[in-house]
């Protein structure tokens, strides 16, 4: 354990460099650069607001706020886990030639996606102000929600990265799974519009519901999220992390033979 911490300390510069690299390269040669992190979610949200408030007429107060919260959290999970899935195979040439702790690549991809999400909170702030969201002290809890999502995505990312090394099929399965997951997450529809059984399933089996719901309670109801919901979120992310780390550590010495 002590040794693990020493190793992590030694490779902290690498972690920083990798995160920096991802962020730098993302917007290199684009005219507006980092501004896209804010503009892009705003544009997508705008389109979805137009589509859903005209076509389906969901009766949700402050629909743009409702939408952008779900969208931001789902997009982060999507991006972070999809990229983490590739982090080991994608760095095969490096892992074959020199020793670096392998989890660094998962950790850094999830972190750079997290930084992107933090940028996109700028878009959220704009929507909050325009839609007249009440700013309360409860909002100080938002970082804790984001941390839960981060830990969850990291655990899932470690598991996916490990599994993809041995079975390349995972990438196709997971991309189909993500589509299903998006529809099973109340991002653009209110939970009440689906049947009761499905509601139960979403509430209990979709971890993203716990995170999104905590966030929406704070922004839309100006209240503190229910204790049970927070506990649920923390528990799920902790379990996911332990599971991901366990799978990864168990198999990492065999990666080299498959990449």
């Amino acid at each position: 354990m002590y040794q693990q911490i020493e190793v992590l300390k030694k490779y902290m510069p690498l972690y920083r460099q990798l995160v920096k690299k991802d962020i730098k390269l993302k917007y290199r040669r684009s005219f507006l650069g980092y501004l896209w992190s804010i503009l892009n979610p705003l544009m997508i949200m705008g389109i979805m607001v137009i589509v859903f408030s005209n076509m389906f007429r969901f009766n949700i107060q402050n629909y743009p706020v409702y939408l952008i919260i779900g969208q931001s959290i789902f997009n982060f999970t999507n991006e972070a886990t999809s990229k983490a899935m590739w982090s080991i195979i994608g760095n095969a040439s490096l892992l074959k030639k020199t020793y670096v702790p392998k989890y660094i690549f998962c950790l850094s991809t999830v972190s750079s996606s997290f930084v992107n999400m933090l940028f996109s909170l700028g878009a959220m702030l704009i929507v909050f102000i325009v839609c007249g969201v009440k700013f309360t002290w409860n909002m100080l809890f938002i970082p804790v929600i984001l941390l839960q999502v981060f830990v969850f995505a990291l655990g899932l990312g470690l598991f996916l990265a490990e599994a993809t090394v041995f079975f390349r099929d995972i990438q196709y399965i997971y991309s189909a799974f993500l589509t299903a997951w998006m529809y099973a997450t109340p991002i653009f529809y209110p939970l009440e519009t689906v049947g009761e059984t499905i509601q139960w399933i979403i509430k209990h089996l979709n971890p993203l519901y716990a995170y999104i719901q905590q966030f929406r309670t704070i922004a839309l109801d100006a209240a503190f999220p229910a204790f049970g919901l927070i506990l649920h979120g923390i528990l799920v992310s902790a379990i996911m992390l332990v599971f991901g780390v366990w799978r990864f550590m168990k198999n990492q010495d065999r990666f080299i033979l498959y990449i």
């Binding site: 030694k10 490779y11 902290m12 510069p13 690498l14 920083r16 460099q17 990798l18 690299k21 490096l94 020199t98 670096v100």
Partner: peptide, 10 residues
């Protein structure tokens, strides 16, 4: 980046 791979800081 390469320095960091070898374990040297900025």
């Amino acid at each position: 980046l390469n320095g960091a791979v070898l374990g040297y800081d900025e």
